[in-house]
Simulated assay, not measured.
Amino acid sequence: MGTASTKAKNKYNKKAYDSILLRIPVGEKSIWQEIAAKNSSSLNEFIIKSVKKEIICQKS
């Protein structure tokens, strides 16, 4: 059982965010993390920015 704080955070996250599970080839994650770190971003932030850039390109 989680603490009340953890339960509250999980409840908020469930309402505020969608989740996506990515399956990538072994070794790919470390490459993405390295690139993200070079840009002072988290891996999550790097993935979101990359996808958004691709969406913009597709719309153009």
Rank of each mutant, 00 (worst) to 15 (best):
M1S: 10
M1F: 05
G2A: 07
A4F: 04
A4T: 07
A4Q: 12
S5T: 06
S5G: 04
T6A: 10
T6M: 04
K7R: 12
K7F: 03
K7A: 08
A8I: 05
A8R: 14
A8V: 01
K9T: 04
N10V: 00
N10P: 00
K11S: 13
Y12T: 03
Y12L: 08
N13V: 00
N13M: 04
N13H: 12
K14D: 14
K14H: 11
K15T: 06
A16R: 11
D18S: 10
D18K: 09
D18V: 00
D18A: 07
D18R: 07
S19D: 09
I20V: 15
L22W: 09
L22H: 05
L22V: 03
L22E: 09
R23D: 14
I24P: 02
P25I: 04
P25C: 07
V26A: 15
V26W: 06
G27D: 12
G27T: 09
E28I: 02
E28D: 11
E28K: 10
E28L: 12
K29C: 03
S30R: 09
W32Y: 15
Q33I: 01
E34A: 10
E34Q: 10
E34Y: 05
E34N: 07
A36L: 08
A36Y: 11
A37V: 01
A37I: 01
K38S: 15
K38R: 15
K38G: 13
K38W: 02
N39L: 05
N39R: 13
S40Y: 05
S40C: 02
S40Q: 11
S41G: 00
S42Y: 06
S42M: 04
S42E: 08
S42P: 02
L43G: 04
L43T: 06
N44W: 03
N44I: 02
N44G: 14
F46V: 01
F46E: 08
F46L: 06
I47A: 09
I48D: 00
K49W: 02
S50T: 14
V51E: 06
V51L: 14
K52R: 13
K53S: 11
E54K: 10
E54F: 05
I55T: 05
I55P: 00
I56L: 13
I56N: 11
I56S: 13
Q58H: 11
K59S: 14
K59R: 13
S60R: 12
S60Q: 14
